[in-house]
């Protein structure tokens, strides 16, 4: 799980152009939206693309998104639950 979390941090920084943010700046339990990393709705779409591109996972039910993309840990748990880690 730790390895996947580290990989996700790097992929998110790259995919979302989070200039000046390093993997160490992000805690696995930081909220990605709102007061945490401060991501916006376009970033949410980019995270959906990231999951599909890098892990072959399609989010079929948009309602799940809020839970899946709450934190990096929740993303990693979702990827693991799909057997794609």
């Amino acid at each position: 799980m730790d390895e996947l979390i580290a990989k996700l941090k790097t992929q998110i920084i790259e995919q979302l152009n989070l200039e000046g943010v390093s993997p160490d700046d992000i805690s696995p339990d930081d909220q990605l939206f709102g007061e945490g990393l401060g991501l916006d709705s376009i970033d949410a779409l980019e995270l959906i693309v990231l999951l599909e591109k890098n892990y072959g996972i399609k989010i079929e039910n948009p309602a799940e998104g809020k839970k899946i993309f709450a934190t990096i840990r929740s993303m990693a748990e979702y990827i693991t639950s799909k057997g794609k880690a």
Partner: peptide, 10 residues
């Protein structure tokens, strides 16, 4: 052709 980029689209 690959994965359309939402952040470029906007």
């Amino acid at each position: 052709k690959d994965f359309p980029s939402p952040s470029l689209f906007v």
